[in-house]
């Protein structure tokens, strides 16, 4: 698990993870927000179906791919989470689907 330090403040915002409501702080990335909401595995691979979680948080590894507002394979660690954002994990959906 990951936790914010107790004396850390920030503006709260709401978004959804696979349809369920979740909270984040303004300025956090989608990948950080997922980790802080307790969602670690964000996808399974298109090659073997193995589970993966964000690894580098700096845009290098492409492990943090998630579907954001209906658009698949977005690097969660490079996108700032927004109020009302719909984030979906890609577990069991290794390959990008057309139109998503």
């Amino acid at each position: 698990m990951f936790q914010r330090l107790p004396d850390i403040r920030g503006d709260a915002l709401s978004f959804t993870i696979d349809g369920k409501a979740a909270q984040a702080r303004a300025g956090e990335t989608v990948a950080s927000a997922l980790l802080l909401a307790g969602v670690e595995t964000c996808r399974t691979t298109p090659v073997s179906g193995a589970p993966r979680a964000p690894y580098c948080l700096m845009g290098v590894c492409f492990e943090c791919l998630v579907t954001i507002d209906g658009r698949g394979n977005q690097q969660g660690c490079l996108v700032t989470v927004q109020d009302g954002m719909r984030v979906e994990t890609q577990i069991g959906r290794g390959k990008r689907e057309l139109g998503r």
Binding site: F2, Q3, I8, G10, R25, M58
Partner: peptide
């Protein structure tokens, strides 16, 4: 990075 950007550990 989590610490710097989100104050999280």
């Amino acid at each position: 990075i989590l610490l710097k950007t989100a104050g999280a550990t």
